[in-house]
Simulated scan of single mutants.
Amino acid sequence: MALLHRAELRPTKLELLATWLPGRVWYRGDADAEVVRVGAYRFDDPAGEVGIETLLVRAGTGPVHQVPLTYRGEPLAGAEDWLVGTMEHSALGRRWIYDACGDPVYAAALADAVLADAGQAEEYFEEDGERQVRPPNMEIASDAPAAEVPPVGAVRSIVDGDLTVIVTDGVELTVVRRPGSGASATGVALIGAWDDVSAPLAYAAPR
């Protein structure tokens, strides 16, 4: 489960992405266009320390881009190249925001979602001691029967591109940066559905 806070963010996630996205090799669109959210889904960090959220966004009339993010209360050692930026969270203080493809916590969560069909985290607010669940605005599901997930282990290499490939000790993961573009990889697929679109979001294959 993902506990959400009714908080003020400075800058907002979309403001951060508006300056960060145009510098990505896989970005397609006008660098000056407004970035809007199309959909989002979250994973759980079993340790409860790292926020894991994937945003589907569009800039102007450009294609939908998939941006997995991790939110941390401290910098992630060795991940400077994957830092999107920092924000001030009115409830949690300073947060370091990373492109999650460079975060090992995300790699483990993505492997569970694809290979074990773990699904997305339930999102909720707490108000006056009562839990208020926020319905998901998109669906995700594995396209294969749930299987045992090998130990992910350490991240050994990452190749960023239209298909970002994350190689770990136990699994090779592929993140589709522009879902619906027709790009594909081998392995079990994680399928996303939003609006009237259904497309692969990621792939996983045990090594």
Rank of each mutant, 00 (worst) to 15 (best):
T54K: 07
R42T: 11
D117S: 10
D103Q: 07
P179M: 02
P206I: 07
G170L: 05
G93H: 11
A107K: 12
L83R: 06
V152F: 14
L21Q: 08
D169G: 02
I191K: 02
M1C: 12
T186R: 15
D45M: 06
T186K: 13
A204D: 04
T12H: 09
V152C: 10
A141F: 14
G182P: 01
V84F: 00
R94V: 15
S198Y: 06
N137V: 15
A116G: 02
L55W: 09
G51D: 05
P179Y: 05
T61S: 06
E74L: 09
N137H: 13
D128W: 06
A205D: 06
E127T: 13
R24C: 04
G119F: 01
E49K: 14
A118Q: 01
P206R: 01
I166N: 02
V64F: 06
R10C: 07
A40Q: 14
T12M: 05
S181R: 02
T12C: 06
P136T: 05
I191S: 05
A199R: 04
A147W: 02
V25E: 14
L14S: 12
A185G: 06
S90A: 08
G78L: 01
T186S: 15
G187A: 12
W82K: 00
A183G: 00
D143S: 04
P46K: 12
Y41C: 05
V38E: 13
E74V: 14
G39M: 08
G39C: 08
R94H: 12
A40L: 11
D196H: 10
Q66E: 07
C101I: 15
G153F: 03
L21F: 11
D128L: 10
R131F: 07
P145K: 05
I191C: 08
E148R: 12
D30C: 10
L190E: 01
A185F: 05
P150G: 07
D112Y: 03
A118R: 11
R178G: 00
N137D: 15
D45I: 03
V176S: 08
Y124L: 07
D162Y: 14
V197T: 15
F125E: 00
P179C: 03
D196E: 14
R24N: 04
G39N: 11
V175T: 10
P135D: 08
Y106K: 03
N137E: 15
L83T: 08
A79F: 06
L83N: 01
Y27T: 09
G73L: 13
G51P: 07
E126Y: 10
A108R: 14
L83P: 04
E127L: 14
P179T: 07
A108D: 15
S184L: 05
G119P: 01
Y41K: 00
R94F: 00
E148C: 02
L201M: 02
A31V: 13
P200N: 00
A146L: 03
T186L: 13
Y41R: 01
F125P: 07
V64P: 01
E80M: 02
R207E: 03
G29W: 09
A59P: 04
V84G: 04
I191E: 06
R10F: 13
A154Y: 05
R156Q: 11
G29S: 13
V36Q: 08
H5L: 08
E74I: 09
T19E: 14
I97N: 04
L173G: 09
D112M: 12
